[in-house]
């Protein structure tokens, strides 16, 4: 587990098994393509729970290569990763793609939220220690 630094936030990210899209675990236990919808861990204890989830079998059933990353809240209140690598991973290649759109018609728009599967009950149901 990466060392948790107080003042930062941690989220669980992965790639969607079917599409490979970058996704984030939400408070509802679903996966979203939008970082701002991610479940946030702001304490060592919460971060440890997210880290533990990365190796969870139910996570693996829907996603590939789950791991946690540290993020911060930017000036406009939106989340952004601390590392350039993760910024690129979320935004797509920083270089211009060869086509005008760089996107298939069938692909979702970047801001589209897609719940690709319910992983766990929403938080706030009285059990923050959800056994998966």
């Amino acid at each position: 587990m990466a060392k948790f630094r107080p003042g930062t936030l941690r989220v669980l990210t992965a790639n969607d098994l079917l599409t490979g899209d970058v996704v984030f675990l939400t408070d509802q236990g679903t996966w979203s393509r939008i970082l701002d919808e991610a479940r946030l861990a702001g304490t060592q204890e919460e971060a440890a729970k997210l880290d533990a989830l990365a190796a969870n079998a139910q996570v693996e059933a829907l996603t590939v290569a789950a791991y946690t990353i540290d993020v911060e809240r930017g000036a406009e209140g939106r989340l952004r990763p601390l590392r350039t690598r993760e910024l690129i991973r979320i935004s797509g290649p920083l270089t211009r793609l060869p086509l005008k759109t760089g996107r298939r018609k069938s692909d979702p728009e970047p801001e589209h939220t897609a719940a690709i599967g319910v992983l766990m009950p929403p938080r706030g149901n009285g059990d923050d220690h959800v056994s998966l």
């Binding site: 790639n15 599409t19 490979g20 899209d21 970058v22 590939v64 290569a65 690598r85 690129i88 991973r89 797509g92 290649p93």
Partner: peptide
Amino acid sequence: KPLRLMNGLYLQLHAY
């Protein structure tokens, strides 16, 4: 994973 790699399928940052 080893099966997909043996068929040239990697996972990159954004996608397969």
